[in-house]
Design a protein around this nucleic acid. Structure first.
Lengths: 347, 347
DNA sequence: CTGTTAGCGCATTCAG
DNA sequence: CTGAATGCGCTAACAG
């Protein structure tokens, strides 16, 4: 007992209202000249039949816009990116545009598949957190000239509007702070070098070392941890070294949380206060940072605002306001927040 | 210098390859019978022109599926729902389906708008975390019989496949635990009563009280906090009462994090260890739970698995495997994890 | 194996 | 103010 036509068409409404399809189209789009009574009658028929205009068919007409924006995120279970996505959605919803979302899992091929698919669905614009690596799929011809904005990361050779944070400086400054406190064995935990932020944040980390003539210890560098569990494991390995680091720099949210968990777990196991022995620093806010029982410095910026800005840049292009204008890169301000503990158990 | 036709059509490829559009269609869809050499030639032309099949036009053909699933989340900046969404995406990606996502902000009207829009775009299925309230927009006629799965919450009168957790029992058991420890002034912080989980978790909370003949104090009930900041404020108010609660039950992730922050902040301000004075319990995992320096019990379940299950239920319907079979509600198992501290400063 | 015809649902012409 | 014809891009069904 399935209805033969799941979706009533404009012609069904027309028949029901005893008018031509054109009248229905005009009445429902609100645009054309239709008498008030006619409009009412059409609206009733539409409601009665449960008519819904087919946006896909509509978008076939020349000049019509799909209202779709494709968003490719590397890892949605990172609250940082969830926040970015939410910021993007916030701005696009204001313009009544919808979001097609996909996760690349930091894999360029998955990213390319998603981009191709979104373009095939005639998304009007794309916002991508690029995984890094080959970039053919991001080139204008490949994406059929669909406007693209890169969020959080940029790609060499992909000249499009981008929203970044000043990774290098943030990493450098916070690392410098650790060095100035006397730390000489600072670990680095971050993304692979193929990832823009992984490269840049490591660069800042290195620069700070060079500035004071200290060299980065390769054995203290851990890369490409994808989630908290990986990060916790990697941090555990660092703590197990014969000569463990005296400080750990975590280049993103997931790594930082993993490090904190590792310090806590090991400390409890060994009856030691590892937070007093290992100074923490890194990128990205995380919930309950204030509970970390040791000194910690966070390079922070507003993830939601980053998403909003990316969406705004895209909208400019979509509204034709900046077509053929040169590409812009907006760098969002970061700040460093340091939280220090007094002597651990006293007081 | 804008290209006149941004998107080459099948006919352009046909002309370029010196064949008919039909041959191109067949060659590219891989389905039809096309000679190998022909196929190669077509593929080359397609590449040369940067042709991308228009999925919207394609989905116009009878019998064709859009491959789209619409997902409505109430609040993406809650990591819990980000995880649910990621789980949904994981399953759908396996079937090469794409996700249209929107945030309702716990507002039924926004939810209705999104559902209508997704249906208009001919999404084949919908997964909704319902905000609660009126449900006309979720009725079969309104959504044009598009299969719908409810995630995390159910709606009275909306008889569709649903994935839930056993809110009532979870809340009851963990509340009973607090009561058995002697707590008699237990605060409740959760969603509005109009929200399914808000209702059910409060119900369990009340039941546990009734079972031991203790009555819930209305002044200790705070509802509808939407984010961590709201929750922190509300928790602060509770702590400011003349007779503050001795325990707080937080009915979800955002409330729990807010409560922990409030206890920490107030404690630091007043030089007190509030975690020793206020017993915590509630729903949903959160990062760094182990750092909470006091007793805490969490009713936990796998958010990603909830998303996966919702997607799987939807796929069953989409693949016609369960059409006209009765509606199912899957209840995911929860468990309670309790973490206790020894005496605070000694040891 | 390839081409022609026709129509998916809609809205922009242009006529009345 | 309303209707008829036409085509957006694609592909079944049917020739050939």
């Amino acid at each position: 007992m399935v209805s033969p036509r799941p979706h009533p068409r404009i012609r069904d409404v027309a028949r029901h209202a005893g008018v031509s399809p054109m009248t229905v189209s005009r009445a429902l789009s609100g645009s054309g000249n239709v008498s008030a009574s006619m409009r009412r009658k059409v609206e009733e028929s539409a409601r009665a039949l449960g008519y819904r205009r087919n946006e896909n068919a509509r978008s076939l007409r020349p000049g019509h816009r799909s209202g779709l924006v494709g968003v490719v995120i590397t890892n949605l279970s990172n609250p940082y990116y969830a926040e970015v996505l939410d910021g993007i959605g916030e701005i696009l919803a204001e313009e009544d545009r919808r979001v097609l979302v996909g996760t690349s899992h930091e894999d360029v091929e998955e990213e390319a598949t998603l981009v191709a698919d979104f373009v095939g669905r005639r998304a009007e614009g794309l916002i991508v957190v690029p995984a890094g690596g080959p970039t053919e799929h991001l080139e204008p011809e490949e994406r059929l000239e669909v406007p693209l904005v890169l969020a959080s990361r940029r790609q060499d050779g992909v000249d499009v509007d981008s929203v970044l944070v000043d990774d290098v400086r943030g990493a450098e400054e916070v690392t410098a702070q650790l060095l100035s406190e006397g730390h000489r064995r600072i670990a680095f935990m971050g993304n692979a070098l193929s990832v823009f932020t992984g490269r840049r944040r490591f660069e800042g980390f290195e620069q700070a070392h060079r500035a004071v003539g200290v060299s980065v210890q390769p054995e203290l560098v851990r890369r490409a941890q994808q989630d908290v569990r990986d990060a916790e494991t990697a941090a555990g390995e660092l703590l197990d070294l014969d000569e463990p680091p005296t400080a750990i720099f975590s280049a993103n949210n997931r790594n930082m949380v993993g490090v904190v968990k590792a310090l806590h777990a090991r400390g409890a196991e060994q009856g030691l206060d590892l937070f007093a022995q290992v100074r923490l620093a890194g990128f990205d806010d995380f919930d309950l940072e204030e509970l970390v029982p040791g000194d910690i410095s966070i390079v922070t910026h507003d993830a939601r605002e980053l998403g909003r800005t990316a969406a705004e840049l895209l909208l400019m292009r979509l509204q034709g306001k900046r077509t053929d204008r040169p590409t812009r890169t907006i760098e969002l301000p970061t700040s460093i927040r340091t939280r220090r503990r007094g002597p651990t158990t006293s007081d």
